[in-house]
Simulated scan of single mutants.
Amino acid sequence: MFRMPPEWAPHERTWMAWPGPNPTFDDEVGLAQAREAWAAVARAVRRFEPVTMVTGPGQSADARALLGPDIELVERDLDDAWMRDIGPTFVTDGDRLAAVDWTFNGWGAQSWARWGHDSKIGAYVSDLAGAQTLTSELVNEGGAIHVDGEGTVLLTETVQLGPERNPDWTRAQVEAEIHARLGTTKAIWLPRGLSGDYGEFGTRGHVDIVAAFARPGVIVAHTQPDPAHPDHELCKGIVAQLRAETDAKGRPLEVVEVPAPTVLKADEEWVDYSYINHYLCNGGVVLCSFGDPRDKEAAAVFQELFPDRTVVQVDARTIFAGGGGIHCITQQQPLVG
């Protein structure tokens, strides 16, 4: 049976996609800033494991100049640059590698989104990785799921059950498909995502900026200490819900709260800046920073959670301006065998 390993399991490599001209980065300055930010993440991950970057046709030379010589480049038509969502979700039975190719529709067919090319990237990356491709009719993205590797998966109601993605699916049908593809047995449904994730370039509620497993039975959860921010009450409710839950093994969940950065707004909009949107790679934790007093506090929390890993912080403000974070632009390929 195929199952999705937890992110802390050993990786073969990390997959990413290079920003190209599109509505998310709508001018030369924005695109240049995005490429600098993506390159900083790629170089941080490369300290710990191989990285393959998918670039648009003819963009490899520009990418190479920022990435350096030791990141593999492959060219393929792209619409956007969020590999967690457009790429496949890798699974394994211990001996074989497979990849779930979810149906992708531009985060709920949003008006600005294009996905004619991105909807094919999952199968393309699966093929490059030598994996068996497992297609799914469920409209879903990698940022909308998080697993503990022991049967539990985190989901949000506004993504998988929202009318923009799967209007004709019931909760039971979604759970059955998720469990069949990921090898999970219990789904923990959070009601929604952070407020800023419902803005123009938001995903409508991805779980990977709200809560994530750090190890079986332990979850890191975003909290908003400032009552002026609409996520203040939302996060209190989510933390309370998680502390009342048990995982697939019947264990009560330990919840480690990670406070949001002190900044509340950017460009007059509520921000969803979150340290939860981190990426675990072989021997490392690549963690968002925001030029904020709470950056060091968050790094200390993650260093305590992962004492055998090196915590590296990368400024993620440009990435969040485009609608995501470090976890959203990376996708792990597990080591098999």
Score class of each variant (00 low, 15 high):
T24G: 06
T158L: 11
N166R: 10
P261R: 04
Q313A: 09
L305R: 03
L234T: 06
P252W: 04
G56M: 05
A131H: 10
G325D: 01
D295W: 12
T310Y: 02
F201K: 06
I276N: 03
M16V: 07
E49S: 03
R43L: 13
I209G: 08
R96Y: 05
G322M: 01
I326C: 10
G291Q: 05
S274M: 07
A99W: 12
L138P: 13
T133D: 13
T310H: 09
M16P: 12
E254K: 12
H117V: 14
E28K: 02
A131E: 12
D101I: 10
H229S: 10
A240S: 13
R181G: 03
V147A: 02
H222T: 06
V125W: 06
P227Y: 09
L67N: 03
S136G: 08
L264M: 06
L242S: 03
L134K: 01
A180I: 07
P6R: 12
S126E: 03
I219K: 02
G322I: 02
L190V: 06
R84V: 08
T52E: 11
E245Q: 15
H222W: 10
E72P: 07
Q331R: 11
T318R: 02
F104K: 06
H232Q: 09
M1S: 14
G217D: 09
H278W: 12
P293I: 08
N105A: 02
R165S: 11
F104Q: 08
E36A: 15
I238Q: 15
D267F: 11
A144R: 00
